[in-house]
Each structure stands twice: as C-alpha cells, then as structure tokens.
C-alpha cells in the first residue's frame, strides 16, 4: 500500500496552492523594498510635517512664497515645453520610420538606441561643450554669418530644452512608431477613394488614429521631465531652476530637510496624479 503511494508518478504534482503561501517567494523582494523604499519615503513625509516645527508650515511657505512658487511654475513650463518640442520632432520621424523600408529604418533605430543607451552624463557633457559660448555651434553660426555675437545657449532655458529634448526623443518616437505602424492603410485608402485630400486624410484620419501613441509618449516625457535633475542642473541656469534641483539644494546644501521633503512630496503628488491619468487613459497593461 505504501509502496503503491511512493510509486505514484503523480506524487510530486501537488494540487495548485491557493492563498498567501504562493506569495512567499516574493517576500525577500517585498521586505527589501519595504525597508529601503517605503520606510525612507514615509520618514521623509514625516520630516516634511515635523521639521522645523510640527504642522503644514513647509507646504504653506512652498506654495505661498514667490520664489518657491516660481520654481514650481518653471518646472511645469519647462516640462511642457520639452514635451511639445519633442512631439513636434518625433511625429514626423515616427511616421517616416513606419514607411521606410526596414533596412533603412533599422539603421535609424540603431542610432536611437545608441543615443538612448549612452551614459546620461556623457550626453550632457557633449551638449555642455557644444553649446558653450566658444562652442562649435556658436562658431559655426558665426562662421556662416548668421550671427555676430555668440548666442547664450547654455545655463538658460535654451540649454535645458535642447538637452532634455535630446534625452526624451526616443521615448516619444518609439511608442508613436508602434501606433503609426499599427494603422491599417486601408482606412486611409477608403478616405482617399471617397474623395478626401491628403491634408484632410492626415487631420481627420491619421492624426486621430495616432492619438494613443501621442498620449502615451507625451505623458511619459512630461512626467519624466517634471522630476529631472541632472540635465537641468548642468545645462540650466539659476533663474530657471527646476523642482528637483531645488529639493537637492534644500536637503544637501542648505540642510533644510523639512522644506526639501515637503517639496519632494509636492513633486511626488503631482507625478502620481499625472501617472494615474496616464493609467486611466491607456490601461495598466500598456504601462508594463
């Protein structure tokens, strides 16, 4: 009898376990993230309402003080500007990639990947050197005779916009390319047969059909840009400081932990709100 059981070929095949036991393999990762992410973030939240004194004082001064409010406004303006410029460049590129023969588009994709995978500081350094007063771009423009004086391209809005657009382009080109390639050409043929002009087909058929890709790409870039630190810190100027820079400065240099954490939570809240809109509109499945 016992032998019969031990010879049973199905002996190792247990019935599917239901319930929390199946959660067990995830525990190490869960505990790690809890200790090193949830606990630090929670204590940061606590700091923001207890230092220097208990209350919402930090949040009130952040939103009330003109200097801080301007940083907040700047952050939104720069993020929106970068998103817009990126979209305007990315749309035609994604369109072109969707219709080019795959041999040619593969080369383009390799260029996109190369720029995307190159170390962030390396890329930013490249722009710092290119954009400086005596840099190649200013010299080239002066050499051609377009300008007499070097343009101020760095440590200002222009510098941040160029540097961030460069970083964000792949994040819009790739989802847009997927959407545009997915459009059924027959729909556009139908529009053409029924007498629509190319311009009308673009505005009334192609653009609306590519809206999901536009939405996904823009939202991603906007949210990423809101919290960006390295590029604005190196290419931007003091007069258009962004929120992330201000947080770092308050915490690291000014030791103003309370105010810095409050600013961090404003950034987190804004990020999560936009992220929620994104998930609502596109669905969690697409985010993964």
């Amino acid at each position: 009898m016992f032998e019969a059981i031990s010879n049973n070929p199905y002996r190792n095949l247990r019935a599917p376990r239901v319930g929390l036991r199946r959660l067990r393999p995830a525990l190490p990762a869960l505990i790690f993230l809890f200790v090193f992410m949830v606990v630090p973030l929670s204590s940061l939240l606590l700091l923001s309402v207890t230092k220097p004194e208990t209350g919402l004082g930090n949040y009130i001064s952040l939103l009330g003080d003109a200097t801080y409010a301007r940083v907040l406004l700047n952050t939104f303006i720069i993020a929106a500007l970068v998103t817009l410029v990126t979209l305007v460049i990315a749309y035609p590129v994604a369109w072109l990639l969707a219709i080019l023969p795959s041999r040619v588009s593969q080369i383009f994709f390799a260029i996109i990947l190369l720029s995307m995978w190159t170390n962030l500081l390396a890329r930013t350094y490249g722009w710092m050197v290119l954009l400086q007063r005596t840099g190649v771009i200013n010299r080239a423009l002066m050499g051609v005779g377009l300008i007499d004086q070097p343009l101020p391209l760095i440590n200002n809005l222009a510098g941040v916009t160029i540097g961030m657009t460069y970083i964000m382009l792949p994040y819009v080109i790739l989802p847009l390319h997927a959407t545009i390639s997915g459009i059924d050409p027959a729909i556009m043929q139908a529009a053409a047969i029924t007498g629509a002009k190319p311009r009308q087909i673009f505005w009334h058929v192609m653009l609306p059909l590519s809206l999901p890709g536009i939405g996904a790409g823009c939202m991603m870039v906007f949210v990423m840009a809101l919290g960006y630190y390295v590029t604005p810190a190196l290419l931007g100027g003091t007069s258009n400081m962004m929120l992330a820079e201000m947080i770092a400065q308050q915490v690291q240099s000014l030791l103003n932990w309370g105010l810095g954490s409050a600013a961090a939570f404003i950034l987190l809240a804004v990020t999560l709100v936009f992220y929620a809109i994104y998930v609502r509109a596109i669905g969690l499945g697409r985010v993964r």
């Binding site: 959660l23 987190l268 990020t271």
Partner: peptide
C-alpha cells in the same frame, strides 16, 4: 492571491517615483 496586481505595481513603482525623491529619502 488577492492583491497580485497591486503587488506587481508595487514592484515596478521605483520606476515611477522620481529618482531625486528616492535619493533624498535614502540620503536622510
């Protein structure tokens, strides 16, 4: 198990939280 989707979202949440916030939280 209940909350599996939530757990999945939790595991990828470090991608969503701006890294500067993680950085100062860990710094403190």
């Amino acid at each position: 198990f209940p909350g599996r989707t939530l757990l999945h979202a939790f595991f990828i949440s470090p991608m969503i939280v701006p890294v500067i916030i993680l950085a100062i939280a860990l710094y403190v």
